[in-house]
């Protein structure tokens, strides 16, 4: 159990939130324990970004992107899905639990889903112990 709120890094494709209210909420009203990294497309997310988040002590990483047919750049998300999903499996292989990396592929018509998914993710992470595997730069100190 975590006694404080889990630290979450949200990688968000700038096109996946079609609804202006949702985007405004993400841009301005995110809870302080959620750190937003906006990217032009999920295809832009290098696995090193995810790794740096994990090494920086993130309890969870959430990646939000568009559904397969709805990518702004036609197929950026297809490559990202293969790579990032595999990277999450690979991190699990060396001890960073698989359910700490979560994807939310948003339909253009979804409203309020990002809030729901983040809340659910936070609730799930709160039930898990604090992430220690791979976290090496917590609080700016090395172990």
């Amino acid at each position: 159990m975590i006694d404080h709120k889990p630290k979450i890094i949200l990688f968000q494709c700038q096109w996946c939130l079609y609804s202006a209210e949702d985007q405004t909420w993400v841009d301005t009203q995110l809870p302080v324990n959620i750190h937003l990294v906006k990217v032009p497309c999920t295809g832009r997310i290098n696995t090193l970004y995810v790794l740096n988040a994990v090494q920086g002590g993130a309890d969870g990483v959430m990646i939000s992107g568009c559904l397969p047919e709805q990518c702004h750049f036609k197929e950026g998300n297809l490559g990202a899905r293969r790579q990032l999903d595999q990277f999450a499996d690979f991190l699990d292989h060396i001890g960073y639990e698989r359910n700490r990396v979560r994807f939310t592929w948003l339909d253009l018509q979804d409203r309020g889903r990002i809030q729901r998914d983040l809340a659910q993710f936070e609730a799930d992470l709160t039930k898990m112990p604090k992430s220690e595997a791979l976290a090496t730069r917590v609080g700016g100190h090395h172990d």
Binding site: L51, Q55, F90, T136, D143
Partner: peptide
């Protein structure tokens, strides 16, 4: 600077993870 290039725990683990993952 993508990752620490010294012999630090963070840098060494990042090297081993990413070197292997680039071979996927």
């Amino acid at each position: 600077r993508w990752t620490e290039s010294t012999v630090s725990p963070a840098g060494m683990r990042a090297w081993h993870i990413v070197r292997a993952f680039h071979q996927a």
